[in-house]
Design a binder for these strands. Sequence first.
DNA 1: CCTACCGATCGGTAGG
DNA 2: CCTACCGATCGGTAGG
Lengths: 209, 209
Amino acid sequence: MARPRSADHDIKRRAILNRSAALFAQNGYDRTAMAEVAAACGVSKALLYHYYAGKDALLFDILREHLQELIDAAAAVERSLPPRARLRALVGALLEAYRDADHQHKIQINEMSKLPPERHRMLVGIERELVAIYAEAIAQVLPAIGRDKSLLKPVTMSLFGMLNWHYMWFREKGAISRDDYADMVTTLLIEGAQALSSEARAGAKRRSA
Amino acid sequence: MARPRSADHDIKRRAILNRSAALFAQNGYDRTAMAEVAAACGVSKALLYHYYAGKDALLFDILREHLQELIDAAAAVERSLPPRARLRALVGALLEAYRDADHQHKIQINEMSKLPPERHRMLVGIERELVAIYAEAIAQVLPAIGRDKSLLKPVTMSLFGMLNWHYMWFREKGAISRDDYADMVTTLLIEGAQALSSEARAGAKRRSA
DNA sequence: CCTACCGATCGGTAGG
DNA sequence: CCTACCGATCGGTAGG
């Protein structure tokens, strides 16, 4: 009979994931040796390779888990909320999921493309799921934008720009809280995009006149 | 008398800068060997080291030139323009400076922190100059936001988020042009932030009532 | 004492 | 679960 997994197998794996994420984020993936990861986790390099088949597998697992947490956070937002409240809740949920995930977020942006094509594609697929949730929510709040794909994509990407750039300047002890920033981003997007569709309507009127 | 520099010294240096930027952006800084850079430029490695003291120096020069071009583009925007038109022109100038600079932009985001501390600090200083220009222009359009530092910083960073994230999705042959996107971002920011300061005023009234 | 350029090889470290 | 060790490759430099 096969030896059962040790009771703390998952706990150790998780510890390795968090430690290596910190190292990858701070020093860069290529500059972090597997020996450093092992040392930081207090295990031998051989044991590290018992948990993970290779450096790739470690990077992949960090990002798969991180992206899954983002999807889960978005999926947990009540679908029956009024459109505007729902978008605000989705923005808040993402910023909240980013708390304590700065390392993972930085790795997603800086190192994801270093994965082999197959694994990279899988993660891009999860990213697309996430974007689709937000694009749909925006379309619900702003039907005029939702109807025009050439507008919906850049507006959605503007939202992700504001949210995904936050790690460059946002500090937990700063002047505004995550919740404050969620309010700000939601207002910028909705009020700004409403002005956008008024302009588009005015433009259409001018063209048809 | 000292031997003069060859007439095409600067041209060759520039060619090396552009080729290495493409390699660093596509394969990552750490994964690009100096031998590859040399091969891509059609020169020997020894000659490459004649032009640049080391790999660091190459990365530094790519980013210093890129950031200087962004500053120059912003500085070229007429100071006497009405505030709103000036902000629109600044946004357009940055997006225009990003044209043909996707490699440099990606390197700025992904590899800048791999520079030695001293050189890294110098580039962060140039980035701050750039941000200051935009923050001031925002404050001119939206005095209520300009007066409140806890608002001005996140609003400015929201703008840079939208602009600096564009390389992830914007395509030259896509549905909208750089100019269209400059319009969109400016409208999102100004109209959105106007709604923001109305909310803040309403909030202040509620609190003082 | 400078710049321009080569073929060959150095010491040290990477992931596994 | 460990120590010992590998094949490959790195950035940088030698003499001329």
